[in-house]
Every structure is written in structure tokens, then in C-alpha cells.
Design a protein around this nucleic acid. Structure first.
Lengths: 140, 140
DNA sequence: CTCATTGCAAAACGTTTGCACAAAA
DNA sequence: TTTTGTGCAAACGTTTTGCAATGAG
């Protein structure tokens, strides 16, 4: 693959996979991406999804989010945000409110220089809020 | 296996693996646990580490931490804490200072009921603080 | 034509499990 | 003895890769 071609080839599946990630309400698993891509392009294979996602990650168009042992992917460039994982239905949402204020370069007790942070909130999403609360599980 | 035996058997490797996790400065990968266990008990196999870690997880003596796509394990019962991942040396540390205050039951904009939270800080650990800052990587 | 991209199948990787043996009770 | 725990190797699920065929330029 050349680094850049002057004219962009029309790569159907890459475009579809990109769009699937763009319009998602939160990060998706590879399986989710495959299913949503196949809804539009029935013949697509799993390897293509893995390859395309890796390519998009290298381009920094997309980035991985690891959550509860599963790797999900989301489109980049959505600004600073965090994730909410519903302990009832398992869906992951994007939250734009940030509960921490740690300027880059802050020094934490012990001499840890903080450059970035990641926050995941666990609880019940709006759809599940009326449900019986679940154990957050002992991962936390 | 019975749920409980009245007299506890002396299970050498389990004790060593537990202690390895107890004295660790932060969560460890299975490979780390294996290496540290073998330093004391040379013949130990990988399957034993997996089995023992799973057992300790079921007992809630230990719990998994997923970070950057890798699953690490740490001893439970260390109180509320978070993790610091060094972008220079890759080590993960435990931090007892908590940068967020979200009481259980708080409702986030959009109707998300928060029951727990997880924070990971990225940056340079004390040992690497003098080093040239690294890109935090575009996972963040 | 050339060459990037694809689907398929095989390989590689991390984790789990079956089994025969060893050690403890 | 019975029972639990072990190492080894095979099995398993997920992700990656080799390769021949397809499709775009």
C-alpha cells in the first residue's frame, strides 16, 4: 500500500465501516461492527472488519476502548468524553460531561505526572433506570 | 471440590500466587504472575496460574483489571483506588487519591444512574518522570 | 495492464479443559 | 484409601495472516 494516493480509491467496505462507527451511539465490538456492516453489504467477512478497523486505528480515525475485558472501537475526534457502561443491559454510552479536572502536567502524590485520564462510569442507563439495581460486579 | 473443608490444605502454589499478588505494587499480568511465582517455585505451569487466579477471583480475593486491552489481576480489599499507567515504561501503579466524587446513586445528565466509577490516569511514573514525555497514544 | 483490497482458510495467540499422576488427608 | 491439586497437552475462541481471486485505475 502506498502511503497516500492522489485520487482516493472507492473502497466500499471501508466507507461503510467508517460510517457504522460514526453513527454509533457509543463504542462497538468487532461483532457489532460486522453485523451492522453486513446489514448493508451482506458478503463482508470478519477478517475485513478486523483489517479495516486496524487500518482506521492506524490513521487515528478510530480508536480502541477496553471495557470489562472486551475491546470496543469508536470514531475519534468526538472531543473529550467518557463512557457509561450499563450494568443491566450491557450497552456502552458516550458521556460528554467529565467528572474530573486534571490539567495535563499535574503531578499526583508520589510523583506521577498525569498526561491524560480515562473514566468509566457504571450504573443503570435511562432505559434501565427503573429496573432493580444490579451488583456492579466485583471487577470494580 | 467441596465448598469448604474444615482444615485448610497446605496448597503451596496457591499461597505463593496469593502472596505475589498481595505484595505487588499494582495489578499484574498472568505472565508476570507466572514469572514471579516461578522465581520461588520453579516448576509451576501456566495452567496453574490461570486456574489459581480464577479461583481467587471466584473467592473475590483477587479481581481483574482490564487496561489497554490486557487483563491484569490485583488483590482485592485494598479500598477505593485507581490506576496509573506509565506511558514510558508500561508499568501500572495503584493510586489511592481519587480525583472524582460521585456518590452512588448520582444521576448524570441524560438520566444515567451512577453506581460505581473507574479511573485510569496515564502519564510518567516517578522513575520515568525525567524522561522525554511520550505520546499518550491515541487510545485516549 | 498493475496493484490495492477482498474472502477464505490456515495460523497464531491467549485462555481453558481433560486426563493421568502426585501429594495430602 | 479417597480426594484435591498439578503438569502436560489438546481444545477452544478470538484475532491475524498467506494467498489466490477480484475489482479499480
Amino acid at each position: 500500500m502506498t502511503a497516500l494516493s492522489t485520487t482516493r480509491r472507492s473502497t466500499r467496505q471501508r466507507d461503510v465501516i467508517s460510517r457504522v462507527l460514526e453513527v454509533a451511539e457509543g463504542p462497538l465490538s468487532v461483532t457489532d461492527i460486522l453485523a451492522r456492516t453486513q446489514a448493508e453489504l451482506p458478503g463482508v467477512g470478519l477478517a475485513t472488519v478486523y483489517r479495516t478497523v486496524k487500518l482506521l486505528c492506524d490513521q487515528e480515525t478510530v480508536h480502541p476502548v477496553t471495557l470489562d475485558g472486551e475491546t470496543l472501537y469508536e470514531a475519534s475526534g468526538r472531543g473529550h468524553h467518557h463512557h457509561f457502561s450499563c450494568t443491566a443491559c450491557g450497552r456502552v454510552f458516550t458521556l460528554h460531561a467529565c467528572p474530573v479536572s486534571i490539567p495535563a502536567g499535574s503531578v499526583y502524590p508520589g510523583g506521577f505526572v498525569v498526561e491524560a485520564h480515562e473514566v468509566t462510569l457504571y450504573g443503570r442507563c435511562p432505559d434501565c433506570a427503573g429496573t432493580v439495581p444490579q451488583e456492579p460486579g466485583h471487577r470494580l
